[in-house]
């Protein structure tokens, strides 16, 4: 355990990241039940610049931007979380089975995996959305979730493949532990070190991917909204109401930054243990 050359303690990354993320999540959760103004009411005057009454100003229909961002961020969060859950669940399942059992199934599945990762994930998501039919947040979640499976599968597989020949696994077999027990009780907890940072990176990628898809109009559509969708709205009026694009963009940045810091801290800590 040697001191790392970077002078910043990974713990401080973790703490700052956790504080930012928790605050945002808190605001989002409160926003699900209460926002200062109705996010859909068009009665607050069009294109008002930020003031104490409307801290992020109002948009072209006279809606309060702050309230809309809180609601939209809620959608973004739900989409990103569901995406990561689908991707991680599928990837961990495939990766642990192939990594643990090996053999022909492993070879075939991993080649398929390699082939899938050769495409830009965005392109694959586009394909899936066009197959499922665009227009709802469920198709976005499904598309991104499926696209995220290969990377989780690869990470999990390589950890399992290196762990399965360790003595403690051999010992467990000799005491009569079954495959399921070995996979879930022995091996999976040992992959946390690499999987936790992968989860945070996956979450950020999901936030950005959802934002880009909605920005391009193949993601969330009205009446739903999300940060990405709002950003695409904001760009058409960036010269009249720059605060709209700015506040929406900064919200995305802040969300990704907070979770990114957590991931950075986790990764640094994992390296320190090595």
């Amino acid at each position: 355990m040697t001191k790392k050359d970077s002078s910043i303690d990974p713990k401080s990354f973790l703490i700052v990241g956790a504080v930012i993320t928790l605050l945002l999540v808190l605001v989002i959760i409160v926003g699900m039940f209460w926002t200062p103004y109705s996010p859909t009411a068009m009665k607050y005057g069009r294109f008002q610049s930020p003031s104490w009454n409307h801290i992020f100003g109002t948009d072209n229909f006279g809606r309060d931007i702050f309230s809309r961002i809180v609601k939209g961020a809620g959608n973004t969060l739900v989409i990103a979380l569901s995406t990561v859950i689908i991707g991680a669940a599928g990837g961990i399942l495939i990766g642990s089975l192939t990594g643990y059992f090996g053999g022909a199934v492993d070879v075939v599945l991993m080649r398929v995996n390699d082939a899938l990762t050769a495409f830009p994930s965005f392109l694959l998501a586009l394909l899936i959305v066009s197959l499922v039919g665009p227009g709802s947040k469920y198709s976005v979640v499904l598309a991104l979730g499926l696209v995220f499976i290969p990377s989780f599968a690869r990470v999990t597989r390589s950890e399992f493949a290196s762990l399965r020949s360790r003595n403690f696994v051999t010992g467990a077999r000799l005491t009569g532990a079954g495959h399921a027990r070995i996979i879930f009780v022995y091996l999976l907890p040992n992959t946390g070190r690499v999987l936790l940072p992968a989860l945070t990176i996956g979450f950020n990628n999901a936030v950005l991917a959802e934002a880009s898809m909605s920005f391009l109009g193949i993601g969330v559509t009205p009446p739903d909204s999300s940060l990405g969708y709002m950003l695409s709205e904001a760009q058409s009026m960036v010269s009249i109401a720059p605060w709209y694009a700015l506040s929406t963009g900064l919200s995305i940045v802040l969300l990704v930054f907070g979770v990114g810091l957590i991931g950075e801290g986790l990764q640094a800590r994992a390296k320190e243990v090595d």
């Binding site: 360790r166 003595n167 403690f168 051999t170 010992g171 000799l174 005491t175 009569g176 040992n190 946390g192």
Partner: peptide
């Protein structure tokens, strides 16, 4: 019944998370 083994390398014979 059930012969057991004690390994050479005590570092990899224990699960690091428990």
């Amino acid at each position: 019944k059930r012969p057991q083994i004690i390994f050479q390398d005590p570092y990899s014979s224990l699960n690091p998370v428990y």
